[in-house]
């Protein structure tokens, strides 16, 4: 954790007045409008909003995959302009390398940065095990199920030891059963390997189950509607009274933004 000259804590990720406009043949479209947010160390923040509201766009900007039209993103106090290994991303579209095996994908970042073989073998072993893919080290991606692919994506991002981990609706392509399982897994992995996480979803249960804090985004042009701090004890129970109350409250809030 870093402090500035006045001894104030510097957030790991901070977005100031972020705006994003896309211009196309059919004119200009403002997707993000004046978004301010900050994420502190080891916090699990969920960006929650309706489909097509600009969650992916915001996440791309925060991680440096895209640039804002105006406004600035800071990571540990430094301006973010391009993707970098300290900001790991798990993509909605997975974006795995099909010509590499599970291990090849997971160890890609370490190898790219010239980490010695012993070390990347050991680290990739650890994370492949952590996401439950032991025995599939040498399998090619196209032989895996959707849930397993997403696990590879998560292991790949973790293995690179980023400061912040961005996850863009990682479970949206999975069936309900697998989804519940993966939510449990992510909660467990996050408890084992503490990390700052920015998690994007449009599923309220997922949001309440995982988040320390939920940032509620409105429809396009998107801005921050409200923030919720979730203090329910972990591991959480989807059916507990408090869980359901929170879920209903946020759902109501959300409906009023539509």
């Amino acid at each position: 954790m870093q402090m500035d000259s006045k001894g104030k804590l510097i957030p790991v990720i901070e977005g100031r007045k972020i705006c994003k406009r896309f211009s196309s043949k059919r004119g200009e479209k403002t997707v993000l409008e004046d978004i301010d947010l900050s994420v502190s160390e080891n916090e699990f923040v969920v960006l929650f909003g309706p489909g097509q509201c600009g969650k992916t766009t915001l996440m791309n900007i925060l991680s440096g995959l895209d640039v804002p039209t105006s406004g600035t993103v800071y990571c540990d106090g430094e301006i973010v302009q391009r993707p970098a290994p300290e900001r790991g991303v798990v993509f909605q579209a997975m974006a795995l390398f099909p010509w590499l095996t599970v291990r090849g994908n997971v160890a890609y970042g370490l190898k790219a940065r010239g980490v010695p073989r012993d070390e990347w073998m050991e680290r990739s072993d650890y994370f492949i095990k952590l996401v439950g893919l032991e025995g599939f080290e040498d399998a090619y991606i196209n032989r895996l199920s959707g849930g397993m692919k997403q696990r590879v994506g998560i292991a790949r991002a973790y293995c690179n030891d980023p400061k912040v981990l961005f996850m863009d609706e990682p479970f949206s392509a999975l069936d309900a059963q697998t989804r519940y399982m993966m939510q449990d897994e992510i909660a467990r992995i996050w408890e084992t390997e503490k990390k700052t996480v920015v998690f994007v979803t449009n599923n309220i249960e997922e949001a309440v189950f995982l988040a320390d804090r939920i940032i509620l985004l409105t429809n396009c042009p998107s801005h921050v509607k409200k923030e919720y701090r979730i203090d329910l004890p972990r591991p959480r129970d989807y059916t507990s009274r408090d869980f359901l109350l929170l879920r209903d409250e946020i759902t109501k809030q959300m409906d009023s933004t539509l």
Partner: peptide, 29 residues
């Protein structure tokens, strides 16, 4: 070559040369 994979390579810390060798070439095979 899928631009998302190129960005992904950059995100993981690969430089231009490494991206060419490990993403552009195999993608073209």
């Amino acid at each position: 070559v899928d631009p998302l994979l190129l960005k992904c390579g950059e995100m993981l810390g690969a430089d231009k040369k490494y991206i060419f060798r490990t993403i552009v070439l195999p993608y073209s095979v």
